[in-house]
């Protein structure tokens, strides 16, 4: 866990797909979002093409630390959804009848 994310800064980007900063995560928790799934969805963490590969663990640790909860409890409902990487619509349509 990098110490840099605990410093107040607008420039530390946690989610590179949607440009979510550490500060935005902190503010959302302060605003009263007390569930990690709600926080994650509210900030669109894991909604981009990487599906949370880079942001989820950092955000989950920040949330766990702020709320005093365990990491496994925080990540209980986090699920990666198919496809694993974005796929062109073209591949799905080839030779398929409507």
């Amino acid at each position: 866990m990098g110490r840099e994310v605990s410093k107040s800064s607008n420039t530390v980007i946690v989610c590179r797909c949607n440009d979510v900063t550490a500060d935005e995560i902190r503010k959302a928790i302060e605003m009263g979002i007390d569930d990690f799934e709600l926080l994650r969805k509210y900030l669109r963490l894991g909604f981009g093409p990487c599906q949370g590969r880079s942001c989820i663990m950092i955000a989950a640790r920040m949330f766990a630390r702020a709320t005093g909860r365990g990491l496994d409890e925080v990540l209980l409902n986090y699920k990666v959804r198919p496809p694993i990487v974005p796929i062109s619509a073209r591949y799905f349509i080839k030779g398929v009848k409507s």
Binding site: F47, R81, P82, I87, S88, A89, K97, S98
Partner: peptide, 17 residues
Amino acid sequence: KPLRELLPFLSSVNILR
């Protein structure tokens, strides 16, 4: 498929999730 008939640009979008 049916939506792509109506909106041809859908052939070139990427399915994310």
